[in-house]
Design a protein around this nucleic acid. Structure first.
Length: 190
DNA sequence: CATGGGATTGACT
DNA sequence: GTCAATCCCATGC
């Protein structure tokens, strides 16, 4: 989608990204799990303000913010809100739709539900790395495209975010209800 | 310049 | 359920 799609409140974008399609290097998957992060709350990297690490996070909406997690994994985010606001949507899980054999090779696993059911898993499956940090999601190499019609009516669950120690009370996680490719099951709904 | 911690995963008990 | 791997960077001395 164009940058204007992302230039809105990050929680709104996080919800609307469910059902959209991420693609990179011949592989693609439908987004089934997201989380919103905003510099006003301490779980966000941007909470400490603008630094070299968070430069992309505070930059123009519609760019990819890719960071290393636990020194091991890469995580993919879509930068949101106007420039100067540190906000992004963490892409937490996909349902594979294209390039599945390539994903299997990259992951060293067979089962469809194991390929992209976590933020570190999906970047590995799609071959997304730190070198993609800052790229425009409307131009690539990492792309996010509009929701296919079949996903327009998907029911969405809302819950607290996962794997963080601060601001854990915010209901900023969104999941496609019934998907078998979530990083963890969805509970509440809305 | 040294240190500590993290938006995770996979292997093992 | 527990735990190591592994590295970037913010922080503090």
């Amino acid at each position: 989608m164009r940058p204007v799609f992302y230039a809105r409140p990050v929680v709104e974008v996080a919800r609307e990204l469910i059902g959209c399609v991420v693609s990179h290097d011949g592989c693609a998957g439908v987004i089934v799990e997201t989380e919103a992060y905003h510099h006003s709350e301490p779980a966000c990297h941007g909470f400490v303000g603008l630094t070299e690490r968070t430069r992309v996070l505070f930059g123009p909406p519609g760019c990819a913010y890719v960071y290393r997690s636990y020194g091991v994994h890469a995580c993919l985010n879509a930068v949101c809100e106007p420039p100067g606001v540190g906000a992004a949507v963490l892409i937490r899980a996909l349902e594979p739709v294209e390039g599945i054999d390539r994903m299997r090779r990259r992951r060293g696993l067979d089962r469809l539900e194991d390929l992209c059911s976590g933020p570190g898993k999906l970047t590995q499956a799609l071959g997304i790395g730190l070198e993609d940090n800052g790229c425009q999601l409307s131009r690539g190499p990492v792309l996010i495209a509009r929701r296919p019609r079949a996903w327009r009516g998907a029911q969405i669950a809302v819950s607290k975010r996962i794997g963080i120690t601060k601001a854990t009370e915010l209901p900023w996680r969104f999941c496609a209800v019934g998907s078998r490719c979530l990083s963890r099951p969805a509970f509440s709904r809305a």
